[in-house]
Design a protein around this nucleic acid. Structure first.
Lengths: 262, 262
DNA sequence: CAAGATTGTCCCTTACAAAAGACACATGTA
DNA sequence: TACATGTGTCTTTTGTAAGGGACAATCTTG
C-alpha cells in the first residue's frame, strides 16, 4: 500500500525526499512556468519545483529538444515552446465550444465595453479560459489561465450546479472558502448559492474577489443540464440595477447561442 | 555511444524493443494526436505509438489527471486538454513576434484576399505557425502546425539563409529533397537558392508542393541577419508578374514592421 | 450463442532513469 | 587575491516505473 498520494508535507520539507517520477517533474515544470509567466533559468526552475539540478537539466534538455520548451532569447532561460502553442491550437480546433466562446467573449466586451470572460472547470478548479478587457480606463483583468477557488466567483457557482453535495465538497477545500479579504464563507451558504444559481440560470456576486467589482455570470451547456462553461462580465460594483439586468439578459441570449441542447 | 537517434526500423519492428522512457512515450503520444488531429481510443493510441497497452493506460491517466489530455465526449477517446491550450496561450503572450505576426497575417489575407501564412523553424522542420485563408473560392489552405520538408517551400529557403553548408545539410534529409510529384531537387541547387534568397530578401517558388500555386515569402528578423520567421502568400500560379511584384512589395513592408533590428 | 476482438485493471520483474555529488568554469564582490 | 554563488557536464548507485502478461468484462460478427 505504501502511501501513493503525496503526503502534503506543507512545511517540513524533508519527507524522505523520495524519488520523483520524471513525468511528474515535467508537469511541475510546466505548471511552474505557467505560474511565473516568464522565462526562467534552469537553476531557478530546479529550486522552483524543488527538484535536483541534474535532473532538471536533463528534463529541460529533453523538453527543449522536443520543442515543448524553448531557450529564451538572452541565454540560459527557458519558457514554453512552439510545440505547446501548436497543441493548444489543436485543442481549440477540436473544441467548438471554446472556439465559438472566444469569439463571443471578444464580441461581448467590444459591445458592452466591460471585461468579459469565458470560464471552465479545469481539474476541479475555476479557470479563466479566455478574457477580453473592457474599454474602461481601469482594467479589471485577470490573466488567462488564472485559477481561482470556485467559491470566490459567480461562475464557480454555476459550474457546480447539478453536482450533488458530496461532489461539491470534494472539489472545494476549506481554504477555498476564505475570501481574499479574510472573510470565510459557510459551506452551506455556498451550496445554497449553487442550487439557486442552477435554477435561476444566472449568478451575480458583488465584492467577492475585490471590493470594486460585480461579476455577472451565465452558464453555457454542452448537454441539457450539463454546464460546460460560463460566460461572465466583470463590471463596477456600482453598476445600476437596470444596466445589470440588461447585461444579464444579453449574456443569457449569447450563452444560449453557444449552448448545445441546453 | 549506443545509438541515440532512433534507428528508424522502418518495417522490421523488432529492434530489441528496448524499454522506452515514459517521457518519450508521452511526447510520442502528443505528436501522434497532433498528426491524427482527432480524439483517439487508448488502444489505437498504444498501437499508434507502438507502446505496450498497460504503459499507455498509465500514461494517459496521468496526462488526463494533469489536464494535458481530456477524455473526448463519447467515451474512451482522448485528445488534447485545456492545459495545453493555456500553455499555448502563455507561449503567445511571451512571444511578441508570434502575437504581432498572427495579426499581420490575418490582416494581409483580408487585404489581399490571398492565403497568408506565418512560418517558423520548429526543431529543424518548416512549420506553418499561423495561417489565414484567402477569399478565393478554392481554398489553398494547409493546416496550422503542419510540418513540411524545407526544400518544398519558399519560406524554407529563407529560414536557412545565413546558415553554412554543413548546418543546412544537417537539417535536410535526402527524402526532403523529393518533391510531392516525385521530382528530386539537387542539394546544390537548393543551397544556391538559399544563398540567393538571403541576398534578395525574398523568395518565390512556383509549383513546388502542387502544380497550381506559387508561394511568395519574405523573412522576418529577430536580430540583424537572424531569420526568425517568414511571412508568405500562397497565390495561384498564373498570378501576373505585376501583381506578384506588388504583393512581394507589400509583404516586405509588413515583414520589416515585424522585424527587430532587421 | 460461441469465437474473436477490444477495453480496463492488476501483479511481478528488472532494465533503467532520478538523484547525489564531484568537477571545471564562469561570474560577481568583499 | 580569496570567497561565495551560479552554471553546465559527468559518473555512480539504487529505487521504481515500464513492460509483459494474465484477467474479467464488454462489444462485434458470423
Amino acid at each position: 500500500m505504501q502511501d501513493g498520494n503525496a503526503p502534503a508535507v506543507s512545511a517540513g520539507e524533508k519527507m524522505t525526499a523520495s524519488r520523483e517520477k520524471g513525468l511528474n517533474r515535467v508537469l511541475e515544470i510546466l505548471e511552474f512556468l505557467h505560474a511565473t509567466q516568464r522565462a526562467t533559468g534552469i537553476g531557478d526552475l530546479a529550486k522552483g519545483v524543488n527538484a535536483p539540478r541534474s535532473t532538471t537539466y536533463t528534463l529541460v534538455r529533453l523538453l527543449v529538444d522536443a520543442g515543448l520548451l524553448e531557450m529564451a532569447g538572452d541565454g540560459n532561460r527557458v519558457y514554453f515552446g512552439k510545440k505547446l502553442y501548436l497543441y493548444g491550437m489543436d485543442y481549440v480546433r477540436g473544441n467548438d465550444l471554446l472556439r465559438r466562446g472566444r469569439q463571443e467573449v471578444d464580441h461581448l466586451s467590444r459591445e458592452t465595453g466591460e471585461t468579459s470572460e469565458l470560464c471552465m472547470l479545469q481539474s476541479g478548479r475555476y479557470t479563466i479560459v479566455h478574457s477580453s478587457p473592457g474599454s474602461r480606463p481601469f482594467r479589471i483583468s485577470s490573466a488567462t489561465g488564472l485559477q481561482i477557488p470556485l467559491p470566490w466567483t459567480a461562475s464557480g457557482r454555476l459550474l457546480l450546479a447539478g453536482l450533488d453535495r458530496a461532489a461539491i465538497e470534494a472539489m472545494v477545500s476549506d481554504d477555498d472558502l476564505v475570501l481574499p479579504d479574510g472573510r470565510k464563507l459557510r459551506l452551506d451558504d455556498f451550496i445554497a448559492d449553487i442550487a439557486k444559481a442552477g435554477t435561476t440560470g444566472y449568478c451575480v456576486t458583488s465584492g467577492l474577489v475585490d471590493a470594486y467589482t460585480k461579476c455577472l455570470a451565465v452558464p453555457v451547456f454542452s448537454a441539457p443540464g450539463k454546464v460546460e462553461a460560463t460566460m461572465c462580465l466583470v463590471v463596477p460594483i456600482d453598476t445600476s440595477e437596470k444596466r445589470t439586468a440588461d447585461l444579464i439578459g444579453l449574456l443569457r441570449v449569447r450563452a444560449s447561442g453557444l449552448s448545445i441542447g441546453g
